[in-house]
């Protein structure tokens, strides 16, 4: 009988891994292209980070409805994510924004600690997006989460030193952000490495553009990063974080237009599809907003044989 050869690549590299929480949670470590069991028999299971905000003004009502009462407070919201099976909590400290109440770094850090204590899950912590304030916030967060290895988000080419130093001080990981370009992603990892961040403390976010808003760029950038990393480019062998919650930025995701079908289900598929594209192109950690989407993503990971 004809014998079809298995087109197994001989990769010379693999993705590094980071350990989080008290060390029991690991992300990364893939040795082949995603989910191909003939390349990597135990392709690591991607982790899911459930998104929690400390300020829900401007937040989509459909998501708040999914969480009900729990969403009124970051701790109960995070506990709800844990109960539904999230591996991490992505905490966005929006209240630190000068236009959203200007919460102090200490207050923000206390919230982070409470979420960590209540759930025991590692966190990915974001500030409000204003570089100076975020650096202040992350210094306080780093200290308050000492002993509970988390990910401090995010650092960019022109502002990485303070947050990276804060992360190193307490053995946290740093999320290196770059704008949709394999060379920029690599450059960012080199910068961090030169600054003294250990590769086992780095994760990267090459920007997951959502479905219908440039997703194909991200899909291809991610694939190229994976191919280069597996081919031995050490400066790209860093676990990838993909933020699929950005799907909600796309109007068709949650626009309440009946001709586009049921809006809650459509939003779940919009986020799911963005997440699946991320998984197939190499995501190690997915940030998700809706728990409907998480249920679908988990089912898909099982069906793909991830972490088997």
């Amino acid at each position: 009988m004809a014998k079809v050869p298995l087109p197994k690549e001989k990769w010379s590299g693999n993705i590094g891994s980071v350990s989080l929480g008290d060390g029991g949670v690991r992300a990364g470590g893939g040795k082949g292209m995603p989910f191909l069991s003939f390349e990597d028999r135990s392709y690591p299971r991607a982790l899911i980070a459930g998104e929690v905000m400390d300020d829900v003004s401007d937040f989509p009502q459909i998501v708040l409805d999914q969480f009900g009462e729990a969403a009124s407070d970051p701790v109960s919201w995070a506990e709800e994510w844990k109960a539904r099976g999230a591996d991490l909590i992505c905490l966005r400290l929006l209240s630190t924004d000068p236009d959203r109440g200007d919460a102090s770094p200490e207050d923000a850090a206390r919230t982070a600690r409470e979420v960590a204590d209540a759930t025991g899950l590692p966190l990915i912590v974001y500030g409000c997006g204003i570089a100076d304030k975020d650096a202040d916030t992350m210094e306080a967060v780093s200290a308050s989460l000492a002993g509970h290895r988390s990910i401090l988000a995010y650092v960019e080419e022109d502002s990485y030193k303070r947050i990276s130093a804060a992360a190193m001080a307490n053995k946290h990981s740093v999320l290196a952000f770059s704008n949709l370009d394999i060379n920029l992603a690599k450059q960012m990892n080199i910068l961090l490495s030169d600054f003294g961040v250990d590769r086992s403390d780095m994760v990267m976010d090459p920007l997951m553009a959502p479905l219908g808003m440039g997703m194909e760029y991200s899909y291809s950038v991610n694939e190229r990063i994976m191919l280069a990393a597996l081919s031995g480019d050490r400066m790209l062998q860093v676990p990838m974080v993909c933020d699929a919650s950005q799907a909600w930025q796309v109007r068709d995701c949650s626009d309440d237009d009946p001709s586009l079908g049921d809006v809650a289900e459509r939003a779940a598929w919009w986020e799911f599809t963005t997440a699946l594209a991320a998984l197939l192109s190499g995501a190690d950690i997915l940030i998700l907003r809706g728990h409907d989407a998480m249920a679908l993503v988990k089912e898909a990971i099982d069906d793909l044989g991830g972490g088997a």
Binding site: L211, G212, M215, D252, S259, L260, G261, D262, V263, E265, R266, W269, W270, F272, T273, A277
Partner: peptide
């Protein structure tokens, strides 16, 4: 197939 499924799929 329903509209809420078809739209994301066709966008993909």
């Amino acid at each position: 197939l329903e509209a809420q499924q078809a739209l994301p799929l066709m966008t993909l």
